[in-house]
């Protein structure tokens, strides 16, 4: 009945059975905190993000951090080898993670990573796409929807012109990229459910 933590933001999927759930959570929190801080530093550099109200900056980050991390760490999911690399650098096979309780979310993460890497985005395009993911006016709790919407539109326009410049099949690439947004929402929902189940457990 041993517990596992099948999240690559953790050092290892193996949980020490002698540790209390509080200790396990504290350790996990320590391991993902640097990545969350990096997302905040990234957000601060998005032109116009710091002009939003403090409340809306926090709301966007609270709602979107997971999705940004999925994009940034998509390469941890090796579609070819069917492995996931954890923070320790150690790789675990899909089969091993499945035997530890990983389910539908794992499959969906692989599917997403595969589709994203197929678009062959440059670092600049990936960065702009990540900004679009974060600045979404339809997140819950936004107080000034118009400001967030205006910033999001600017970012989408910039992303579009960048894609148009760099890709031969630009319209298809841009459409496929925008279709990743609902995919990320769906992953976010699945992840929230798993986290909640973990906390309850």
């Amino acid at each position: 009945n041993r517990m596992h933590l099948v999240c690559p933001m953790s050092v290892s999927p193996y949980v020490d059975p002698c540790k209390s759930s509080h200790e396990i959570w504290e350790e996990f929190s320590m391991s993902f905190t640097p990545a969350v801080r990096e997302v905040v530093e990234f957000a601060k550099k998005i032109p116009g993000f710091r002009d939003l109200s403090q409340h809306d900056q926090v709301s966007l980050l609270k709602a979107g951090t997971f999705e940004v991390l999925v994009v940034r760490f998509a390469s941890l999911f090796d579609v070819k080898d069917r492995t996931v690399t954890f923070l320790s650098g150690k790789k675990y096979s899909v089969e091993a993670l499945r035997s530890m309780g990983a389910g539908e979310l794992l499959n969906s993460m692989f599917e997403f990573s595969e589709k994203l890497s197929a678009l062959q985005l440059s670092e600049e395009e990936m960065s702009l796409f990540t900004a679009v993911v974060l600045v979404s006016a339809d997140r819950s709790g936004i107080e000034n929807v118009n400001s967030v919407e205006a910033l999001q539109e600017n970012l989408i326009r910039a992303l579009r012109s960048l894609i148009m410049k760099n890709h031969s099949n630009e319209a298809a690439t841009f459409t496929k990229l925008l279709l990743k947004l609902p995919d990320l929402r769906s992953l976010n929902n699945m992840h929230s459910e798993e986290l909640l189940a973990f906390k309850v457990h």
């Binding site: 929190s29 905190t33 969350v36 801080r37 905040v40 530093e41 601060k44 403090q54 900056q57 926090v58 709301s59 980050l61 609270k62 709602a63 951090t65 997140r139 819950s140 709790g141 976010n188 929902n189 929230s192 986290l195 909640l196 906390k199």
Partner: peptide, 27 residues
């Protein structure tokens, strides 16, 4: 989702990183 984030301590990490609080700088 936001409610989950609050429960997970994410909001605290985000606020500290956004504000660059003195506590954060000491770390």
């Amino acid at each position: 989702l936001s409610e989950h984030a609050s429960n997970l301590g994410l909001e605290d990490i985000i606020r500290k990183a956004l504000m660059g609080s003195s506590e954060e700088r000491q770390e």
